[in-house]
Amino acid sequence: MATIKVQTEDFDVSREIAALTAGRSDIGGIGCFVGVVRERAGADQAPEPVAAMTLEHYPGMTERAIARIAEQAEQRFDILGCTVIHRVGTLRTGDNIVLVLAVSAHRQPALDATAFLIDWLKTKAPFWKREEFADGSGAWVDAREADDAAAERWSRDG
């Protein structure tokens, strides 16, 4: 029952929350994470501000991988639904990259599932970021050990 979208266009957080909660009276809490393009991305070592970021992905596998992560969230936490929207293509500073929503009767499962979903998305879904600088140069973003550690804290069987 997860809603999963991989798209170039932006998303509207309010509209996605309304879609996830429509017609339900059993939801007591909504967890929400929005990732946005930062001026200094990567590992903060970039010598100059990022002008744009391009996100590449593996069509077909991406949707499968996110569906599997969402299934894990639904098994591990007492949630009533979740939404994952990940943008691809070229984005500018301040643009939305990713939306994670999770809903539950009480706050804790929604908050935990939201954190779990973004932590696993960062390390278990086939997306790659390339930063482009004002002078026209660019660089692929390196994976961060901190992200691996964040994903690892949820490891039980995966």
Binding site: Y58, H86, K122, A125, P126, F127, W128, A143, D147
Partner: peptide, 9 residues
Amino acid sequence: AFFPPVTGG
């Protein structure tokens, strides 16, 4: 498929 470590999210 071959790719570097993923960096989405």
